[in-house]
Design a protein around this nucleic acid. Structure first.
Length: 1139
RNA sequence: AGUCUCGUAGCUUAGCUGGUAAGAGCACUACACUGAUAAUGUAGAGGUCCGUGGUUCAAGUCCACGCGAGACUACCA
């Protein structure tokens, strides 16, 4: 049994405080478990699955998190309103480099110190404590912004259960042959001694412009391997290749050409050694390579007569051929210092690669498989060996550069032991000439250089050491995502992306250019790879149970003394049981398994990329498949209906989710995804700590409260657009939308309480209500219809704007303004009940529709309304259901008429302004010309009368008074354009010059014949619009099809009434000043000039009625002195004491 | 460097499938209205719709190129 607080009257407030409302509501939610109820109450309904992208708990939340979390919250709440069950589990990304680095900074240690100054165990413990600290802050933040998510049973990526699921998934991949160990080239920082993730490479400021020494190198072709044509050439043939990293040249093992690129053989000279020779390069690059120093010739003579010292070198094109034809050709090793340890015979070949372009360089790409990602790939495909040499000490083949970034000792002087980039030397100790320069000089001396120049380009730098990174071959475990590429592309077509372009372009493009996923991370705080290996055998562990069994075998073999998992009970899914296991480093490294041959197997020491952690959350959050199997298998919690994160997650979480689900189950992981735009500062710059333009979300929330902040963010831009965050905008939202809505409620509450309205009366049929009510209800239902569409299409901007427009313009500034008297003046009549019911329904509907975005405010509003009427209500707005619109209530005729009335009002008010006649001064007559009559317009004339203060309104058609107005013809281009084509312009000119008589005739005949270019053309009335031109005369004004004429003559009767109303206004002000209650009666006395006395006598009753005066006397000795129309009068007011 | 998104008044923006002197809000100025108003109304000022070409009878809207901003991707040698 639930007990609710019931209110006898509608709650009224002295002051409006959004913040206070929010904190009160937050407490109520907690106290009454509203969030839990919002899920339980939907038991048995459709399930709407939402996945929470786990935030990395390594720092304070920023203002953009408000945006992201609000959007997630909005759609979950919306779907709850629609009656769906929206369970959402929170989650935390507890592992990963960012956390490790923060901890290192806090402890003031580096990676190298781990295991030395601090034990791995202690280190990981510190990471865990660090994470816990921030999850607390995040929870507080989440509550503060009103983001509803289940914090009681969050998924944590470091939990044993979570890790077990990850291991299981990896094992599945292994079984599917999607997991392999490979020697792959990775970004690597020699200075830091560690590989870098793509995430790290994309930190701001990583790519810097640097200037490198680049050379175009000559690789001497082995003629016999070339096509027959070359064999007859009398001199040496060279392949030209360009490189920005000369230090990779000793590691060269191949050259790549584009198979469909056209190449040339050219007869010319080397510009340094003046050797006459043949060079091969791409046709389109000839002008870039053979620039300034060279000039083309077509005869042999110029070549023959050339001698050293001539300032220009001749060249002659000998032949053209396509890249394909030289594939397989061989060349002499450029720097024959060492040879590859394997497959030597395959080295120094020309191969084909589709990545070769002719934008820069020579069209031939130098390949060093050890130091380039593309290089390694193309070499592998073509069975070209990498330049690795056998190290007898380490007993393995190593590249020519060591892990510190130095050339190995095996190379000749002066290169041996030198850092390949000068940046790697400490401070001032670097040599005068870098390896690049020295090597270029050497090659030049040997006549192997065609050209040397400086080149500026962007190159990634290690964000920790600020030094250029190296691409270096590392031993890593990879997931063969490329094998699932087409599945992923296909499955992506079933995902609804918001905005579409992110999915169809950006994400799809990314999928089409997929690389395998490098899983290995040489770190400490993360999920260990569950792989044990010998040289010949490897075993992957997919569960703790399996590990326990394997350890038992190992104990038998004598490799381990006892089973650290002995207390773990297989099959017992209790948390207590799982708390007995913590497989993090270093624990897991102590486990030695036994191979089938009886030899020890040791664990691969790396961790898994954290992105794998979060990408596996659909499964791991449920400890799948060990528990909750049906949640996934029966599709109850998979795939998600909805996820949302920042656009930056497209290649991050959105991708890892997609990849894992595609490979594991050939299914999408989510059906709808919103890629949320970024939050920039108010000038459109990215927020960053270094720029100092970040915004503290806690401060913003303290200042303006969550509702205004949320509303502001979602109304300013579409969820997927970048938001330029300006705190002033929140204040504006608070003032305008929330202020107005509050005032509307306050107005309602005040009068409803006076009249004792509690919605006890039966619901009045719409057709029995006055036009004004029918109009606002029509607008309301149209609003419901649109808002629903906008929510369904994730268009929060449109939704908020249209709600706000309804509240401010329609409800507050028009409906209430016009209807004020109905609430104030009359007795408790049917009309009044209609007004109350109408306003109540509007407010109630607004509270529900805006509740997803402004959850606190709208709940307070909702409760204030329903707890008093006790009519079909729920404990909270968040347990209510989205309103249903009624097409029958939407009335376009009344809408149009009201629009007309509003326009007329606007025109008349502008007349008054121009003539400086106050609205309080009544005027006699208003004539409105309309093109056609609508019944409703007559009933609305009362509204216009009241609003613009005129005594009489007359409606007439245009035709009746046409002779008084200047009329003009406007062509209907949509009809004339297609008919006349180029002649449209001429017709326009002719029609513009039509005289009033011609227009009259046309109107009478229904058409007009005009002559263009000698041809007679019939223009019908449908093809033009006849409009009344705005007259300069202040009396008349028109707005599109309506025209308004105002009688400005003020006689004494009108003038006196005006004065009376003016007087009432002053008296009301005094009442207010003297703090009389709104219903207090009073005694009134006025002292004024004889003329004013005459007015007072004439309008005595009116004045008394309006000011609730029981008596009105004329006395010049009492009351306040008030300036009134140039004279000083006295007004005395005394509250009547009640019994 | 490539890919994607975007560019409308000082600021934030609306402008549907091209239809003809470009609409709002904020801020500014002046005046008004108000017994719900931290609101509102009226008027004023403020625009080469980023630029240049093109398609079309007609371009803010479509196309191409350029410029600028942002994101993503990237040692493409």
């Amino acid at each position: 049994m639930i007990f609710f607080v019931m209110y006898k009257t509608f709650k009224e407030y002295n002051k409006f405080n959004l913040n206070q409302w929010a904190s009160e509501i937050a407490n109520l939610w907690k106290k009454n478990n509203i969030f839990e109820k919002s899920i339980i109450s939907r038991e048995g309904r459709n399930v709407y699955v939402f996945y929470e992208g786990p935030p990395s708990a390594n720092g304070y939340p920023g203002i953009h998190h408000v945006m992201v979390r609000t959007i997630k919250d909005v759609f979950c709440r919306y779907h709850t309103l629609k009656g769906e069950k929206v369970y959402r589990k929170s989650g935390w990304d507890a592992h990963g480099l960012p956390i490790e680095l923060s901890v290192e900074k806090e402890l003031n240690i580096t990676k190298e110190d781990i295991g030395k100054k601090i034990s791995v165990e202690e280190y990981n413990q510190t990471c865990l404590i660090y994470v816990m600290r921030y999850t607390r802050i995040w929870k507080k933040f989440t509550e503060k912004i009103g983001y509803w998510i289940d914090h009681k049973t969050p998924y944590m990526t470091y939990h044993s259960k979570y890790i077990e699921s990850l291991w299981w998934i990896l094992k599945q991949f292994y079984k599917k042959k999607l997991l392999y160990k490979g020697y792959t080239v990775q970004p690597y920082s020699p200075a830091a001694g560690t590989g870098l993730s793509t995430h790290e490479l994309n930190l701001p400021g990583t790519y810097k412009e640097i200037t490198d020494t680049t050379i175009v190198v000559q690789f001497k072709a082995i003629k016999e391997s070339l096509p027959t044509f070359f064999k007859v050439l009398p001199r040496n043939v060279y392949f030209l290749a360009w490189t920005t990293t000369p230090w990779t040249l000793p590691s060269n093992t191949a050259l790549t050409i584009g198979p469909y690129i056209e190449y040339l053989v050219i007869d010319t000279f080397n510009s340094y050694s003046f050797e006459r020779m043949y060079v091969i390069l791409a046709k389109v690059l000839i002008s870039q390579i053979l620039s300034d120093k060279y000039f083309p010739v077509s005869d042999n003579v110029s070549l023959e007569v050339f001698q050293k010292g001539d300032h220009k070198i001749p060249y002659k094109i000998i032949n053209t051929f396509s890249g394909k034809s030289i594939v397989g050709s061989r060349y002499e090793q450029l720097l024959p210092w060492v040879i590859p340890s394997e497959r030597k015979k395959n080295a120094f070949k020309v191969i084909s690669g589709d990545f070769v372009t002719t934008d820069t360089g020579t069209g031939l790409v130098h390949i060093a498989p050890t130091f380039g990602v593309d290089d390694a790939e193309v070499a592998k495909k073509n069975e070209i060996p990498p330049m690795l040499v056998w190290d007898s000490v380490k007993k393995q083949a190593l590249p020519l550069v060591d892990v510190q970034g130095r050339f190995i000792q095996r190379l000749p002087k002066p290169f041996a032991g030198k850092y390949v980039r000068n940046e790697y030397y400490n401070t001032e100790k670097f040599p005068e000439f870098s390896v690049d320069v020295e090597l270029s000089a050497l090659l030049q001396k040997e006549g192997k250089v065609f050209k040397i120049e400086k080149y500026q380009h962007y190159y990634p730098h290690c964000w920790r050491t600020d030094k250029p990174i190296l691409y270096y071959p590392l031993d890593t475990w990879c997931i063969k995502t490329t094998a699932a590429k087409y599945d992923m592309i296909y499955l992506n077509k079933n995902i609804h992306w918001v905005p579409t372009s992110t999915g169809t372009s950006r994400f799809n493009h990314w999928l089409e250019n997929l690389n395998d996923w490098n899983l290995s991370r040489t770190r400490y705080w993360g999920v260990p790879l569950p792989i044990w290996r010998t040289h010949k055998e490897e075993r992957i562990i997919g569960s703790f149970e399996e590990l326990r069994v394997e350890i038992e075998k190992s104990i038998k073999a004598g490799f381990m003394k006892e089973n650290p998992l002995k207390d773990f009970v297989p099959g017992d899914m209790s948390n207590e049981n799982y708390q007995k296991v913590d497989v993090h480093k270093p624990w897991v490294d102590d486990i030695i398994l036994v191979s089938t041959r009886g030899t020890p197997m040791r664990r691969e020491s790396d961790l898994i990329d954290v992105w794998f952690d979060s990408g596996a959350m659909p499964f791991a959050q449920w400890h799948y498949p060990f528990e909750n199997k049906e949640k996934i298998d029966k599709g109850k919690f998979f795939p998600a209906n909805f996820i949302a994160e920042g656009v930056d997650q497209t290649r991050g979480w959105f991708y890892t989710l997609h990849a894992i689900s595609s490979m594991l189950l050939k299914s999408v992981a989510y059906k709808n995804v919103v890629a949320i735009g970024l939050v920039l500062d108010k000038n459109g710059h990215k927020m960053s700590k270094s720029k100092g333009n970040t915004v503290n979300p806690f401060e913003v929330l303290d200042l303006y409260g969550p509702d205004a902040t949320r509303w502001y963010m979602l109304s300013k831009v579409q969820p997927w657009e970048n938001l330029k965050f300006d705190i002033y905008g929140i204040d504006e939202v608070r003032r305008k939308f929330f202020g107005t809505l509050y005032n509307t409620y306050a107005f309602f509450a005040m009068y409803a309480n006076i009249d004792g309205f509690c919605y006890k009366e039966n619901f009045l049929p719409i057709e029995e209500r006055p036009e004004m009510d029918r109009w606002v209800l029509s607008e309301l239902h149209q609003l419901i219809k649109k808002v629903e569409i906008y929510y369904d299409t994730y268009n929060t901007t449109r939704a908020t704007r249209i709600i706000s427009q309804f509240v401010i313009d329609d409800l507050s500034n028009w409906y209430i303004r016009i209807s004020r008297r109905r609430f104030w003046k009359e007795k408790y009549s049917k009309d009044k009940v209609s007004a109350y019911q109408t306003l109540y329904d509007c407010l109630l509907t607004i509270s529900i529709m805006s509740s997803p975005i402004a959850p606190f405010f709208s709940d307070q509003l909702y409760m204030n309304l329903v707890y008093t009427t006790q009519k079909s209500f729920f404990e909270s707005v968040h347990l209510a259901y989205f309103p249903k619109y009624d097409e029958k209530i939407i009335d376009n005729r009344i809408k149009n008429c009201m629009h007309l009335a509003q326009r007329v009002t606007s025109i008349v008010l502008s007349f008054r302004k121009k003539k400086n006649i106050k609205v309080r001064q009544p005027l006699r007559k208003l004539i409105i010309f309309v093109s056609s009559f609508e019944k409703e317009i007559f009933s609305l004339s009362e509204i216009i009368k009241q609003e613009v203060n005129v005594k009489e309104i007359q409606f007439l058609t245009h035709k009746a008074y046409s002779k008084f107005f200047i009329r003009e013809i406007k062509p209907n281009f949509k009809m004339l354009g297609p008919r006349f084509g180029k002649r449209t312009r001429i017709i326009y000119d002719i029609l513009k010059k039509f005289t009033p008589q011609q227009i009259d005739h046309m109107e009478k005949d229904g058409h007009s014949i005009i002559e263009i270019e000698g041809l007679k053309e019939k223009i019908t009335l449908k093809e033009v619009n006849i409009v009344i031109k705005t007259s300069k005369n202040w009396l008349i004004a028109s707005d599109k099809e309506i025209t308004v004429v105002l009688d400005l003559e003020i006689d004494n009767v009108l003038r006196y009434e005006g004065i009376a109303r003016e007087l009432i206004n002053r008296i009301q002000n005094i009442r207010k000043k003297k703090e009389l209650g709104i219903t207090d009666k009073m005694i009134l006395s006025i002292g004024a000039s004889p003329e004013l006395e005459k007015v007072i006598k004439l309008h005595r009753e009116y004045i008394c009625e309006e000011t609730l005066s029981v008596s009105l006397s004329l006395d010049y000795n009492l009351g306040d002195m008030v300036d009134f129309e140039g004279e000083t009068i006295r007004i005395f007011v005394k509250k009547l004491a009640y019994e």
